[in-house]
Write a protein that binds this DNA or RNA. Sequence first.
DNA 1: GTCTATATCCTGATAGAC
DNA 2: GTCTATCAGGATATAGAC
Lengths: 182, 182
Amino acid sequence: MLREAIELFNLQGYDATSMGDLAARLGFTKSALYHHVPSKEHLLQQALDEALDNLSEAVAAARAESAATALERLRRAVRGSVDVLIEHLPAVTLLLRVRGNSPAEVAALKRRRELDAQLAQLVADAAAEGGIRTDIPADLISRLLFGMVNSLAEWVRPSGRTSPDTIADALTTIAFEGLLAP
Amino acid sequence: MLREAIELFNLQGYDATSMGDLAARLGFTKSALYHHVPSKEHLLQQALDEALDNLSEAVAAARAESAATALERLRRAVRGSVDVLIEHLPAVTLLLRVRGNSPAEVAALKRRRELDAQLAQLVADAAAEGGIRTDIPADLISRLLFGMVNSLAEWVRPSGRTSPDTIADALTTIAFEGLLAP
DNA sequence: GTCTATATCCTGATAGAC
DNA sequence: GTCTATCAGGATATAGAC
């Protein structure tokens, strides 16, 4: 049921999706729906938590690889983020569209900003260690890099013919090596 | 007035912004607002046209450089898209969030898909000419590259301390040369 | 051109029968 | 657990006075 809700929210937008829409999709009435879920915002909250919990875990795992170089930790963070984004695509898509129109959204934005800061720090570490270029500010690199990662939500579909691994490989290759012919 | 509308639409989301909100922001009532604009959707339509017209022009200009290499045409398309995105940031941001919930949105999505196809063709041409790597499918490269470009809308602000030129340079450098230390 | 007042519809959510 | 019926509020848009 949560899955159907998230799917509709992504298809039409959260605000443009009514509880009536969702109930119809599930094959019963609004009232029956409200017997199972306390509010519309609760559904959103659960989706945002799913996205944030998994992204946090992936980033934490990358940061915990203290034996590796900073560049390697960054690579793992990118790879991990891509994997979570694809595996939890509907929830992450919803998270990336949050604008802060309710308490739940504001809280989600705060958690997301904390994550972004951690990722920016990984980029800064890799630059300080000489792993990546230093002619561009680290925070700018971070925004562009993870902007590319997040843009996957706009077109990746589980039914697509390009596998998650292929997508993740292509993204890391282009991001780190560039797209000029070798 | 259109500018205020677009700004509010981006801040709260189109559906979450009421004509009352907009009227209050402009300092008069809903009815006065309706004297100047026929409908809420008309405001959206104008914004989407502004974004699409300028993006189309930039891409057309890049494609028209028939004397240049395909790689150079691609570079110009990227640069031109970034420039338009930053110069018409509110309108383009709105365009990038359209989900197709009304006739105006459906039409905008169609135009945007046509643009994306043209950009993908530029990438394919550059690959065929040997300018960019061929170990990754051209359509995948195109999605990742312009996904990075479009992600600028999520954080670029005209008041920011990073100039549009700096951003455009950084993006093209990272995209074409990669972010590994040279 | 701006106002007050209103029409019409849809929203999230609830009450209470079965 | 699902239903019908309903509440209270807010949405877009309009009518008509000034």
